[in-house]
Every structure is written in C-alpha cells, then in structure tokens.
C-alpha cells in the first residue's frame, strides 16, 4: 500500500490475474445467459460453457411474439413511463434543489430536514394509501400513478444530489446576474441549469434505469395486460410458460436489459465518476 513498495512485477501480475478472474466469475452468469439465448432449450440444462456451438435466433423471434402483444408493445410502454419520469424528475427536482441551495426563506432548514428524512422512507409504507388515493382518482391501470409523482419531486434523492451540486457552483455568477437585473427564475434557467449538466445527466441516467427496472409499483398499478411494461410482461411470461421455454425467456430478458446496458456504456462517466465527485466532495 505504501509508495516505496511499488508492487514488483510478479506481484502486479498476480493482482491483475486475481482481479480478472474475479471479474470473469462476476460476469459469467450474464455471458452464459446471452449464449444460452441462442441455444436450443435442452442445451441450456446441459451446457455450462459460454461458447455457443450453434447460433439459433429462433428464441428471439418466437419469444418476441409469445405473449399477448408483440414485445415492442411492452418496450414502448416502459419507454413512455421512463422518459416521462426523466423529464419530471429533472424539472421538479432541480426547482426544489435551486430553492434549497440558493434561496433563503423561512422554514428552509425544517423543510430541508424533512426532505432528507423522506430519503429513508420505504415505498412500502406509502403504497397502500397511495393505491387507495389512485383508485379514488380512477388512475389505476393508467400510467399516471407512475408519472405524476415524478413531476412533483417525489424522488427526494435527486433533489439532494442536485443541491449538493449547485452548492459547489460559484455564487459570483448568480450575483453578477442579479446585478444585471435577472430574476430568480432566469438565474435558475439560464445559469444554474446549464452549469448543472453533469448532475442532470447523472439524475437522468439513474431515473431512467430505476424506472426501467422498477417492478413493485408497476406490478401494483398496472394490471391490464395492454399496459404491461417489460418487467411485468416478463413476469407474466415466467408464470405462464416460463418453465418450458427458458430460451425464449432468456432472449426476452436480454432484450429488456439492452437499454440499461446501452446507457451504462454511454454514461459510465456520469454513473461511476459522477458518484465519486458529487457523492463526496
């Protein structure tokens, strides 16, 4: 660990071998799922290798149409909710974050503490009365219970992330704009938002990924098969014929993971590095 004992060459090689071996073990199940998705079903239960002996895409073509709707229907449903959630979170959480980070108003500390305490609040405490509320409003089996809360800054986590980021921006910029006669909304929209691009990107990525993966609330609020999202559709696939069609199930599971993997590749910098810089000053 010290600087004078820079690892000698064999030690370094050993370390890398260890790290790579560990990485392979970690990723093996994923790679095996991908390879199994192009294998015939009986091979899935006999062949632990990740090298497919034959390339058979029928699991994808058959799995795509195995449910009531073709799979793009569920992808579209998920995408609508995820994209609306991203827009909602970015707008509503950044407004609240600007207030907490830059404005002085009575009760600010109390509201801030309240906001932080909701970070620890499990959704399970809220879900029953929320369900009652949404069924009064006749919102069950619509996307509204999943989208409207995002436009009302329900994800306190992102408020907190943006507060932390805005605090790190130099105040001189706002003050100069104030002297030029800018109001708070203009400062927020023209100065703070553009400068907060990294925090907004991190928030957008995590909102998308979490919403795409979310199962609990979608399972509860969407019971009509026409509205099923990818996770709920996969679950109904598993319940319906899963045990007899693993190949197709794997194929569609992979399709469901592709968007997350894509955002991971495109946004790694914001996901991992962003954590390190916005997470800890």
């Amino acid at each position: 660990m010290g600087r004078d004992e820079l690892p000698s060459r064999p030690r370094r090689a050993l370390k890398h071998t260890l790290l790579i071996a560990f990485g392979v073990v970690m990723l093996y199940p994923l790679l095996w799922m991908v390879s199994s998705s192009v294998k015939p079903d009986d091979l899935i239960f006999r062949d632990p290798s990740i090298w497919p002996t034959e390339l058979d895409l029928s699991n994808y073509t058959n799995g795509w149409t195995a449910l009531e709707h073709p799979f793009q229907h569920y992808l579209w449903n998920s995408a609508v909710i995820a994209i609306a959630s991203v827009v909602g979170n970015l707008l509503s959480c950044s407004l609240a974050a600007y207030a907490f980070a830059r404005l002085r108003f009575r009760g600010r500390n109390v509201f801030f503490a309240l906001m932080l305490s909701t970070l620890m609040l499990p959704i399970h405490v809220l879900i029953v009365p929320q369900y009652v509320l949404f069924s009064w409003l006749d919102w069950i089996n619509t996307d509204l219970p999943l989208i409207v809360p995002k436009f009302l800054a329900h994800d306190a986590f992102f408020i907190f992330l943006m507060v932390q980021f805005i605090r790190s921006l130099p105040r001189e910029l706002d003050e100069a704009a104030r002297i030029d006669g800018c109001g708070h909304f203009r400062i927020y929209w023209r100065i703070i938002m553009p400068l907060s691009a990294p925090a907004l990107a991190t928030s957008a990525l995590f909102t998308f990924i979490w919403t795409w993966n979310d199962f609990f609330s979608q399972l509860i609020f969407l019971t009509n098969p026409d509205l099923y999202t990818v996770p709920v559709a996969l679950r109904s696939f598993l319940d319906g014929q899963g045990e007899t069609a693993w190949g197709q199930l794997f194929a569609m599971s992979i399709v469901g993971l592709v968007p997350i993997f894509g955002f991971f590749l495109a946004g790694q910098r914001y996901l991992t590095q962003g954590i390190a810089t916005t997470g800890i000053k």
Binding site: L30, W210, W212, P231, L234, L238, L257, I260
Partner: peptide
C-alpha cells in the same frame, strides 16, 4: 455493472 442490472426482473429470472 451488476449493481445496475441486479434490480431487474431479467436478472431475477436468470
């Protein structure tokens, strides 16, 4: 990477 994927139904199925 697994931290991002593990919450999904896909991984639970796997």
């Amino acid at each position: 990477l697994p931290s991002l994927l593990a919450g999904s139904v896909s991984i639970a199925i796997l």
